[in-house]
Design a protein around this nucleic acid. Structure first.
Lengths: 337, 337
DNA sequence: TTGAAAGCGCTAACAG
DNA sequence: CTGTTAGCGCTTTCAA
C-alpha cells in the first residue's frame, strides 16, 4: 500500500542523515556536500516524499493561505474579484480559501471567524456596516476590506462610488434627461454613497431624485421591480441601477412591457459586468474594476504578510462606459423640455 | 497585547484541569461533572479560546477542507460549479480551497498536487485527457472529477454531452435546418463527445456536419471566429456552439456583420449561462446543470470522506431550453428546401 | 469522570 | 556542513 506517505524520518533513515538535514535541504536553507545532496535528492525521489505543510505551518505559524470572503460568487463583480485575487495569490505562492456567504449577513461573522483560524490573512467583502465590523479587528490577522471606508483602521480597496454615480448622472443630464430615477439595493452599505453621487449631480441643476429599491442585487430583482418604476405615476426618463445585473433584468422586463430601449427610457448599470456588452441594447455602465480590486486587495494583504504594512485606503477610479442603453432624451427631441 | 491566542494549556491551567479534559470537552467527546463543565465553559469564554485547527488536523489527519480545481472562474459554468460546491461544503462543515488553473493545462498537475496536500479530498475539472490524468490516482486522496468518464477508476459527475448536442441538432432539424455547423473548442476533452452527438443526429437523416473551432471558450473567441463561419463559401443555416459564451460572442458579431438573428442564422449555446436570457435574441441552449454538478460532486466527495464510498459515475440529464435564437429555417419557408 | 504521557511531522536553535 | 534536542498545540491511549 502506498497509503502511508513517507515522513521526514523515513527520508532521514534511508539517506542516513538526520531529520534536520533533510528539513534544511527541503527548505533550501543551506548548502550541502555534493554526496549528501545527491543522496537526499535520490532518496526523496525514490520515496516520493513531500513535506507535510500542516506540520510546517504549525511551527512557522504561516499557512500560505489567504481567506477570501465574498457575498455571492454568481455576481459578476465577485467573480472578477475572485479572478484577480486568485491570480495574485498564485503568483505569490498562496492559495485561496474561499467562503461565499450567500448574501446572508447573519452568517458572515461565524463564517469569517472560522475562516480566519485557517489562514494567514483575509480579504473580506461584507454587508455589515463599519460599526458592525469591529470584531474583525480582533481576528489578530491582517485583513483587507473591499470597500471604501474611513472609520475603521482596517485597510481597504474600493472604488469611488459617489464619483461613479455622479458620472452616470452627468452623462444622463448631458443627454437631456431630467426625470432621473435611482434603482438601488438598500442592503448594500455602499448604496447610500451611490445615491449621494446622483443627488450631488442633480442638485447642481436643481433637480430631485426618485428612489426605488430592488430586494436583491440580481437580474431577477431588476425584473420584478421594473413595472413599479415604469408604470408608476411619474415615469422616469432615465434609470440608474445599483449594478449591471439589476439593469439587465430591468431592461428585459421593460422590453417585455413594450418599452423601446433606449428611446422610451435610458438605463445604466454599474460594474461593467462582461455580459452588458452582449445585451440588447448594450449596457451603458461604469467600470468599477472588480478584477483589479481583487488583485490589489490581495497584493496589499501579501505585502502586509511580508511585513510591508500599508494601511492606506486605496480608492480606484471609476470609468464611464457609454453603450447603447442610454440616448438623447426623446421628450427633449420632441420639444416637451 | 491580545496577539498570542490562548492555547489549550492556558485553558487547562486557568480552569485547573488537565489539557486532556479540555480537549474532550471542546470536542464534546465525553460528559463531565457539572462543576468541571461550568468551569470550563466559563474559562473558555473568558479567555476567548478557540482550538487551533492546524494542530488538530495534524493528529486526526483531516483538515475539513475540500480542494476545488477549476479552469476559469469567469466562465459561468464554473462559477455555478463553485456556487454548488460551496453550498454543500458549508452544509457539511467543510471549507473550499480553490484553485483556478486559468485554462493552462501545463500548470494543472503542479497546482493540483500542491492542493492535494492541504485538503481531505478534491473535486477536479481538468483539460487533461484521461490518460494524462493517471497521476491523480497517486494523490492518495479521494477525488471526484467533473466529466463524463469511464476509463479511470476515479468517480465522476458529468452530463451526457452526446445527448446534449443530439438534442440541439434534433431541434434544429425539426425547424427545417439542413446546413448545420458546429463551432467547437478543440482543447476541451468533451468537445469530441459534443461533435459526436451532432453527427449521430445528422447522420440519421444523411446530413454531414461542418466543423469550426474557437480558440478559447469565451465570448471574445466567438466574436473572432464569426466572420469565418458566416462569410465563408458555405454559410450554415444554424450554428451549434460549444458553450453559451462562444454563442453570445458569435451572435454579437453576427449582428454587427448585418445578419438578422434568428432569421438569417439560428444559433445555440450549451450550459444555460444566466445571461443567455438577457441577450437579444435570447439564447436557445441546453441546461447542463452546472450548479447541480458542483453540488453532487462535492456531496459524492463528502460521502467518500465519511467512508460511504461510491465509485459510480453520475451522469446528469441535459435539458433543452428553447428561446429566440433559433427559429424555422427561412430557406425552407421560402420554398428553397 | 479525570489526568499523565506519548507523540503527529516538522522546524529552529544550538552544538559539534 | 551536519546532528541533537526541544517543542508547535493538540488528540489519544491507558491508568487512576
Amino acid at each position: 500500500m502506498k497509503n502511508a506517505s513517507p515522513t521526514i524520518r523515513d527520508v532521514a533513515m534511508a539517506a542516513e542523515v538526520s531529520v534536520a538535514t533533510v528539513s534544511k535541504y527541503v527548505n533550501g536553507t543551506k548548502r550541502f556536500s555534493p554526496e549528501v545532496e545527491s543522496r537526499l535528492k535520490e532518496t526523496i525521489e525514490k520515496l516520493g516524499y513531500r513535506s507535510n505543510p500542516l506540520a510546517r505551518s504549525m511551527i512557522t505559524g504561516r499557512t500560505r493561505t489567504i481567506g477570501l470572503a465574498i457575498l455571492d460568487i454568481s455576481n459578476p463583480h465577485f467573480t472578477n474579484v475572485v479572478k484577480g485575487a486568485n491570480r495574485v495569490a498564485l503568483e505569490h505562492d498562496y492559495t485561496l480559501l474561499l467562503v461565499d456567504t450567500e448574501e446572508n449577513p447573519a452568517r458572515e461573522r461565524a463564517l469569517i471567524e472560522a475562516l480566519a483560524q485557517r489562514v494567514d490573512g483575509l480579504v473580506i467583502s461584507s454587508r455589515l456596516s463599519e460599526k458592525e465590523s469591529t470584531w474583525m479587528l480582533e481576528l489578530n490577522k491582517p485583513v483587507v476590506m473591499l470597500r471604501h471606508s474611513h472609520e475603521l483602521t482596517i485597510p481597504t480597496v474600493g472604488i469611488d462610488n459617489r464619483l461613479a454615480t455622479y458620472m452616470l448622472a452627468r452623462h444622463l443630464l448631458n443627454l437631456g434627461h431630467r426625470r432621473i430615477a435611482y434603482l438601488g439595493f438598500g442592503q448594500a452599505s455602499i448604496n447610500d454613497e451611490r445615491i449621494g453621487g446622483v443627488r450631488d449631480c442633480l442638485s447642481e441643476v436643481g433637480l430631485s431624485l426618485d428612489l426605488y429599491d430592488a430586494h436583491a442585487p440580481t437580474a431577477q430583482a431588476g425584473e420584478q421591480v421594473c413595472s413599479k418604476v415604469l408604470l408608476g405615476p411619474q415615469r422616469p426618463q432615465a434609470v440608474i441601477c445599483y449594478n449591471d445585473l439589476i439593469a439587465l433584468g430591468f431592461m428585459k422586463e421593460a422590453k417585455a412591457l413594450g418599452f423601446r430601449l433606449p428611446n422610451d427610457v435610458s438605463v445604466t448599470g454599474i460594474d461593467n459586468a462582461p455580459y452588458g456588452e452582449y445585451a440588447e441594447p448594450t449596457l451603458t455602465t461604469v467600470d468599477t474594476q472588480s478584477e483589479k480590486m481583487g488583485e490589489l486587495a490581495t497584493l496589499k494583504l501579501v505585502d502586509a504578510l511580508a511585513g510591508r504594512a500599508d494601511t492606506a485606503h486605496l480608492i480606484l477610479e471609476p470609468r464611464l462606459i457609454v453603450r447603447d442603453s442610454t440616448s438623447v432624451c426623446t421628450d427633449l427631441a420632441a420639444g416637451k423640455t
